Amino acid sequence: MSQERVLWVLSRPGCHLCDDMVEELMPIARHYGFTVVKRDVDADPAWRQRYGRAIPVVLHGSVEICRHRCDAASVHDYLSRFPLE
């Protein structure tokens, strides 16, 4: 899973911070050939227990890249490790 070119944004419906995260993340992800998918944190009991109210959270597989706000530098640093296909 971690090698797929998909970033998950764990969120909740109506979360404006989550919407902001996706908006900021999309162009960065696109630059590196990744897609962004919003996932409801409450859809998985393990996510709900681990992240609770700490959303939004950006994950690549099980790797947490950032949470609460888009840390563009961290996202660029992480995604630059995966060569374009």
Rank of each mutant, 00 (worst) to 15 (best):
P13R: 14
R39N: 01
G61F: 02
P83Q: 05
E24H: 10
M26E: 15
I28T: 08
C18G: 06
H68R: 14
H16G: 07
H16M: 12
H31N: 13
V57I: 01
D42P: 00
L7P: 00
P45V: 13
V36R: 07
C66T: 07
D42L: 14
M1P: 04
F82I: 08
A72C: 05
V37M: 12
A72F: 00
V6M: 05
R53T: 14
P83C: 11
G61S: 03
H16W: 07
E85L: 15
C15S: 04
A29S: 00
C70N: 10
S11W: 11
E4R: 10
G52L: 11
M1T: 12
E64F: 08
E64Q: 13
W8L: 15
C66N: 02
D42A: 14
Y32P: 02
S80K: 14
S80M: 09
V37N: 05
G33W: 02
A29R: 02
L17M: 08
G33E: 08
D20Y: 11
R69Q: 12
D20P: 01
F34A: 01
H60W: 08
C66M: 03
W47T: 11
S11V: 13
G33Q: 04
I28M: 07
R81F: 05
F82R: 04
H31S: 10
A29L: 02
V9G: 01
W47S: 09
H16P: 06
E4T: 12
T35P: 07
P45F: 09
S2R: 14
Q49A: 15
K38A: 08
S11A: 15
A72K: 08
H31C: 15
R50I: 10
E85D: 15
A46E: 13
L10N: 01
V63I: 07
L7N: 04
R48V: 03
H60Y: 04
D20M: 06
M1R: 09
R53W: 15
Q49S: 15
H31M: 10
V22Y: 04
V75R: 02
D77F: 12
G52C: 10
K38H: 09
R81S: 11
D71A: 08
R81A: 12
S74D: 09
G52S: 12
R67I: 06
V36T: 11
V37W: 03
H60P: 00
C18W: 07
F34M: 02
L79P: 01
E23C: 04
D19T: 10
F34I: 04
S80D: 07
T35V: 13
G52D: 13
V75I: 06
K38M: 06
H16Q: 10
V9P: 00
P27I: 05
C70I: 05
C15Y: 06
A54Y: 14
V22S: 05
G52H: 08
G14I: 05
W47M: 13
G33S: 03
C70F: 00
W47Q: 09
H16E: 03
V41R: 07
R12A: 15
Y78E: 13
A46V: 12
D44F: 03
R48M: 08
